[in-house]
């Protein structure tokens, strides 16, 4: 009876080997695939917390407001309130300097007068394809005390004609670009005289 019902031995061995092979193959795959692979899909789920981990470099104006209250108040009520502090001052990561904290060693730059010729023209230089301010800019009206609200675009100047090579900082406070001021007596006074009282 045995002889007839039992499978031939070589078949038994072969299927055993096949089973062993499959077990080896699948365990090896399971073993070498990290835990989190396939947890959510065909990728290593644990890479996502890693990617989400770094500290943001840019913090936003609300962060600056914690300490530079005056600057923030001035800025947020003037024509540059859409231009975030970190556009001009660089990312806040590591600021302010704290001798007790090795991660806090970044000195935020205070743009020099000379550098404002580069900085301000990034946005305000007349340039092909750059949309003009809409509605057009009006001269500062001391009676209203503020600028005309704008929808889109940006007011543009031809730097050589507008300021004759003088740093923008001489006549514009970057945190409140209008009304204009005279910060230092510039060597040559530009053709457009200040239209409102000197602001310091």
């Amino acid at each position: 009876m045995e002889e007839h019902t039992e499978m031939p031995k070589h078949i038994v061995r072969l299927s055993l080997l096949l089973v062993v092979f499959l077990v080896v193959a699948f365990s090896a795959k399971a073993y070498f695939t990290v835990d989190s692979f396939y947890k959510y899909g065909h990728y290593r789920a644990n890479s996502v917390p890693d990617i989400a981990a770094p500290d943001p470099a840019y913090r936003g104006p609300a962060y600056c407001a914690l300490c530079h209250v005056d600057r923030h108040t001035q800025w947020s009520s003037a024509g540059h309130k859409t231009v975030k502090c970190e556009v001009c001052h660089g990312p806040a990561r590591g600021h302010p300097i704290d001798p007790n904290d090795p991660n806090k060693t970044a000195k935020l730059p205070r743009p020099t007068a000379e550098y404002t010729k580069t900085l301000c023209t990034l946005c305000h230089m007349q340039l092909t394809a750059r949309p003009q301010r809409d509605p057009p800019q009006q001269p500062w009206d001391p009676a209203i005390g503020k600028s005309v609200p704008w929808n889109k675009g940006v007011s543009q100047v031809i730097p050589d004609e507008h300021s004759a090579g003088q740093p923008c900082l001489f006549c514009h406070d970057p945190h409140q670009p209008k009304p204009i001021r005279i910060k230092e007596e510039p060597a040559q006074v530009a053709q457009t005289p200040p239209s409102s009282p000197d602001k310091h």
């Binding site: 062993v20 080896v24 365990s27 996502v48």
Partner: peptide, 29 residues
């Protein structure tokens, strides 16, 4: 090999259950 497989299989079954996910259960942080 069989024993190794068995233990590997065991690890791989237990592994994912043991690892990951914060106490709140929210992912990725």
């Amino acid at each position: 090999a069989g024993a190794a497989c068995a233990s590997a299989a065991l690890i791989s079954v237990l592994g994912p259950a043991v690892a990951k996910d914060g106490p709140s259960g929210s992912f990725p942080t």
